[in-house]
Design a binder for these strands. Structure first.
Lengths: 340, 340
DNA sequence: CTGAAAGCGCTTACAG
DNA sequence: CTGAAAGCGCTTACAG
């Protein structure tokens, strides 16, 4: 009875041959006698031999693992992205190591350290809300480790990135509300330090401008934490102020849900009195018949990995870092569709 | 300019000392001259030295990593469990490697192989729906690798497990409906091959029996895939058959949502005409004001890791495998609360 | 206070 | 067709 997993050495000893031969027999190398090969393979099966990935990584200077730093995993959008990352990575024989920053700069830096220590072959990062100093990421690049950003674009570092077209998605969502006949559209905006928030706001404003509608700063409300409760409260307040409102474009689905609840509890009919559309960070939208902008997170994950593989394959540093912009797609549902 | 990450050897060479000394200086070993130590530490910082975790794992025969095999990560309950696993593991300096079976037996076996190949220090497993042959799991145990099951209990293997009290949760949920005055309670049951489905059904039946209510097999409906659409269709059908129904206990939240939608589109008022309670696999229940049974997934994840550490620490095999049963807690909300 | 050596599991260029 | 040796990065018992 042996304890632990079997090694090449164990097999070699039992068969009275060298490790080299066992290794070659297992890898179906040319120039190994069929008899030897068979006895090795049989014994390996009997003992359920599995190559030690750790030893292989050390020898090959390659772990076949990519590291992911992400703000939060318990989150529909991000978990969907991870799913895409895992599928694409697995199809190429890579493993994925995930680390959550929990929106904290310090934890993010720790994650990077852990992943670099684990010698991942490349890093996929979506920065935390807190992150503004980029030193920890610059180090990664300067050590020659491939780095790809996803979802949250980083300013001041020209690295490969894949993002969704937030501007266009917001523009289309706002235009959709206009098409439904809305005249006074509120924007529940996200935290100003995230580029995605700014892009979405720009899309909203451009759509209004293009349709010759006035921009009313009083109808742009910043939701700090993006929670349903916060949005409900702020929106309720706005309604009580007596402002004329007949449409809402929310920076994210949770905020949209908050607006939906506040509207209903104020006796407004959705979508007749007020049409609402969100932005699918959470994507439970289909379950509650909420119109939203679909971000194709799964595809984003896959694309991020593909770009990563390109970086890994690219020996010369000169390969230009590119920004891949994925389409966002508006999905009208019951909360905004007045026209059958 | 060096490429790749710095090693102890690089530092030793630059300082003209041995690797041993560098290693000891870095680890603050006693008996290293302060001058040497300082020069080593300074250089390590300058070059941003990080110990190679791969090399350490090989040397120590310990990866400080635990492997997780889980049906699906894009799932509120499971992702919550993972979150608990990660937090508890990280607090002990462990990493987590996650592998999705996607409810497939074959993929599950692959996951186990990958994780065993990666030499994780222990395995946390929630089996797929398909799994009935346990050979792949038996192997893990026979190779002396600590194994802990979570959420989905496995029959025919006495391994340490942590599960939620499905029976009690179902009992309480059903009793809650009875307390609300429901006389004809439907049970939307889950797939019969999962123990959790059976336990929940048993809880439902026991609650009815204890309150001297008849068991009507016609009110027990099996939902195969647990989707909202499937439940809505089946429930709609039941309503149209003219059966008198005033309560629903669903095996999971998606099915509960389906029943909710079917009820509303049939003109029934919830909770007045029909009271509905689910079981939080998805846990978006709070967002849609759906009554549900909270499973405390985060706590389950943490507990699973704690049990894993006990197994790792336990040298002797004799340590009995235990089953930890966590309380499920009913959370009444708008979909079932008739009494203010 | 410091170094040479061995070993974790594996592979492969070099001999034979 | 097979084996001995070296090396991936690190640590540590053993010498000095």
């Amino acid at each position: 009875m042996r304890s632990g997993q079997v090694t090449i050495k164990d097999i070699a000893k039992e068969l009275n041959i060298s490790c080299s031969t066992v290794s070659r027999a297992l890898k179906d190398f040319p120039g190994i006698s069929p008899t030897t090969k068979k006895s090795v393979v049989d014994l390996a099966n009997k003992y359920n031999y599995r190559p030690n990935a750790i030893a292989l990584s050390l020898r090959n200077q390659k772990t076949n693992t990519i590291g992911v730093v992400i703000p939060e995993t318990v989150h529909f959008f991000f978990s969907t992205v991870i799913s895409g990352i895992e599928d694409e990575a697995m199809s190429e024989g890579y493993n994925v190591m995930i680390c959550q920053s929990r929106e904290s700069y310090e934890r993010e830096a720790d994650c990077i350290d852990t992943l670099m220590g684990a010698r991942v072959d490349g890093l996929l990062v979506s920065i935390s809300r807190e992150t503004s100093d980029l030193a920890h990421l610059q180090k990664v690049v300067s050590e020659g480790k491939p780095l790809v950003f996803f979802d949250r674009l980083v300013e001041g570092m020209n690295a490969t990135s894949v993002v969704v077209d937030d501007y266009q998605g917001a523009y289309d969502a706002t235009k959709h509300l206009i098409d439904q006949g809305c005249k006074h559209i509120v924007h529940l905006e996200g935290p100003d330090n995230l580029i995605i928030s700014r892009k979405r706001k720009e899309g909203y404003i451009s759509a209004l401008e293009d349709h010759e509608m006035p921009i009313d700063e009083g109808l742009i409300i910043e939701c700090r934490d993006g929670s349903e409760a916060e949005a409900a409260k702020l929106f309720q307040h706005l309604l009580e102020s007596g402002a004329a409102i007949d449409g809402v474009f929310a920076n994210n689905d949770m905020a949209a849900l908050g607006a939906l609840q506040a509207s209903k509890s104020s006796g407004l009919k959705v979508p007749e009195d007020i049409a609402i559309i969100g932005f699918s960070n959470w994507q439970f939208s289909s379950l509650i018949d909420l119109s939203s902008v679909e971000q194709h997170g799964y595809e984003m994950g896959r694309e991020a990995v593909r770009l990563m593989f390109q970086e890994i394959a690219n020996e010369d540093e000169s390969a230009k870092s590119q920004i891949r912009i994925l389409d966002a797609e508006i999905v009208p549902r019951g909360s905004s569709s007045r026209i059958a």
